[in-house]
Computed example of a mutant assay.
Amino acid sequence: MNRLKLNYFVDLALFVQFALVGFSGILLLLNGHGVSQLWKGIHEQLGILMLVFFVVHIALHWRWIVFTTKNFFRIEREMKAGEVIEANYMPVD
């Protein structure tokens, strides 16, 4: 499986988990005592699984995070006459 498909499936799974954890969390918030043990279990187990998928998501996008953070905090300085500009390109996988 190539990296693009892996990113897609990890992000899709993370979205589905987020939606189910959010829905079960709203059920627990509105009627915590009347909700079945099934929804409580779904909420807890998917919350843990969501953490695992979040770590995988961060690992897959780590190079982009580092590159963007460096560019965000880069200090702009004035160019001097005759100075050579070095280009730093991030390769796309």
Rank of each mutant, 00 (worst) to 15 (best):
N2Q: 10
N2G: 11
R3G: 01
R3I: 11
R3T: 10
L4W: 10
L4D: 15
K5H: 08
L6I: 15
L6M: 12
L6N: 05
N7T: 06
N7A: 06
N7D: 14
Y8V: 05
Y8C: 04
V10G: 06
D11S: 15
D11L: 08
L12H: 06
L12E: 10
A13D: 10
L14G: 03
L14C: 01
L14W: 05
F15I: 13
V16S: 07
V16W: 02
F18Q: 13
F18K: 13
A19R: 06
A19P: 00
L20Y: 03
V21Q: 01
V21K: 01
V21N: 02
G22N: 05
G22W: 05
G22Y: 05
F23V: 14
F23M: 08
S24K: 01
S24L: 02
S24M: 06
S24H: 04
I26E: 09
I26D: 06
I26T: 09
L27E: 09
L27Y: 01
L27C: 10
L28H: 03
L29R: 03
L30T: 13
L30V: 09
N31V: 07
N31F: 08
N31W: 08
N31R: 14
G32A: 03
G32D: 07
G32I: 00
G32V: 00
G34M: 04
V35P: 00
S36W: 08
S36P: 02
L38T: 09
W39A: 14
K40L: 01
K40C: 01
G41T: 09
H43S: 04
H43F: 04
E44H: 09
L46W: 00
G47Y: 00
G47P: 00
I48W: 04
L49D: 05
L49I: 03
M50W: 13
M50T: 05
M50Q: 11
L51C: 06
L51T: 02
L51R: 08
L51D: 08
V52W: 07
V52C: 11
V52Y: 11
V52M: 12
V52L: 15
V52G: 10
F53I: 07
F54R: 01
F54T: 10
V55C: 06
V55Q: 04
V55T: 14
V55K: 04
V56G: 06
I58A: 14
H61N: 15
H61Q: 07
H61G: 04
W62I: 10
R63P: 02
W64G: 03
W64N: 10
I65E: 10
V66R: 15
F67A: 12
F67Y: 15
T68H: 12
K70N: 15
K70D: 15
K70G: 10
K70T: 13
N71K: 12
F72L: 14
F72G: 14
F73D: 12
F73W: 15
R74L: 14
R74D: 12
E76M: 09
R77N: 11
R77K: 14
E78G: 09
E78P: 04
E78Y: 07
E78V: 13
A81S: 08
G82Y: 07
G82E: 05
E83W: 02
E83M: 05
V84N: 03
I85W: 02
E86W: 08
A87P: 00
A87C: 00
N88R: 12
Y89P: 01
Y89I: 09
M90W: 05
M90R: 09
P91T: 04
P91Q: 06
V92A: 14
V92M: 11
V92T: 08
D93L: 11
D93F: 13
D93C: 05
D93T: 13
